[in-house]
């Protein structure tokens, strides 16, 4: 009973937080008409372990790293059925800022998905270029640049920071402004509007080879997604935190983005 109440409370809270993306379906039919919703859980990992801020991890390069910030945008969701038909979530409904230190943000619900069996989800890491240059009043909440977009925005090189990783490493050089052996990787750049820039938007496709997400009016399948922060430090290029302790809107950001492009892994789907 207690659990049930807690669950109800959690759900109510969730529905409030994600009003832009949730429509509750209390219908109990199981036919393939109507729409349903799915939950995506972003389970942050550091290699084989769960990510804990302040704990030591070892990168592929052999550096010891400790994290204090891990934020990223995911957006432009597409769900694919086993027969290849796709459902593109209306873009404006689903821009999510996931922050490791905000547990609620690590679980997102997307509703309005036509009933069906989906075994693939596609999305981008970051914010698409159209949104990056859209009028300011069309960017609400986490996207509002005038509200600082939660520290995920560059005003001098207009655009969102797609992935923000900060921490320290004894192998990193002493940073004169922080007085610490800081590591700091802020990656953005959407390709520019009238004049071209580097484009670090990365597409992710997560495919399930066994269970499909059975989206129905009365079900809420769950995509359990691992996000391994250490993947940002390797494949295709090992990052040496002594040589490259920081990266912002420079050419090195391309290497960082290519590394983190494969940090999302679909662990399983459960219905």
């Amino acid at each position: 009973m207690k659990n049930y109440l807690f669950g109800l409370l959690a759900f109510a809270l969730f529905a409030t937080v994600l009003t832009s993306c949730s429509k509750d379906g209390d219908d109990t039919t199981t036919d393939l008409t109507g729409t349903g919703s799915v939950t995506l859980e972003f389970d942050h990992r550091a290699g084989d372990a769960s990510l804990v801020f302040g704990a030591n991890y070892r990168t592929a390069n052999g550096d010891t790293v400790k994290f204090s910030t891990f934020n990223y945008f995911v957006s432009n969701f597409v769900f694919v059925k086993s027969d290849g038909t796709e459902y593109t979530v209306p873009k404006d409904e689903c821009y999510f800022l996931v922050k490791h230190d905000d547990a609620e943000s690590r679980e997102v619900t997307i509703s309005g998905i036509p009933a069906g069996d989906y075994n693939e989800v596609k999305f981008i890491i970051g914010v698409d270029s159209a949104k990056s240059v859209s009028p300011v009043d069309q960017r609400k909440g986490v996207l509002d640049p005038a509200a600082g977009a939660s520290g995920m925005y560059w005003a001098w090189n207009s655009g969102y920071i797609f992935v923000k990783v900060e921490g320290t490493s004894p192998q990193a050089p002493l940073n004169s402004s922080t007085g610490e052996r800081t590591i700091e990787y802020h990656t953005g750049l959407f390709g520019g509007m009238t004049s071209k820039t580097l484009n670090n938007i990365k597409e992710v496709e997560l495919h399930s080879h066994d269970e499909a997400a059975k989206v129905r009016k009365d079900t809420k399948p769950h995509f359990h997604i691992y996000v391994d922060i250490l993947e940002m430090f390797t494949s295709p290029t090992n990052i040496d935190v002594f040589d490259n302790p920081t990266s912002h809107a420079g050419p090195y950001s391309e290497i960082v983005a290519n590394n983190y492009a494969d940090m999302f892994i679909l662990d399983h789907i459960h219905n």
Partner: peptide
């Protein structure tokens, strides 16, 4: 079509944010 010497800002509405935050 862009603002500032480096063209870092593509929209007029976003121009003040640069000066405010610098």
């Amino acid at each position: 079509t862009s603002f500032f010497w480096d063209g870092g800002v593509p929209l007029l509405d976003l121009v003040p944010l640069n000066a405010i935050q610098n």
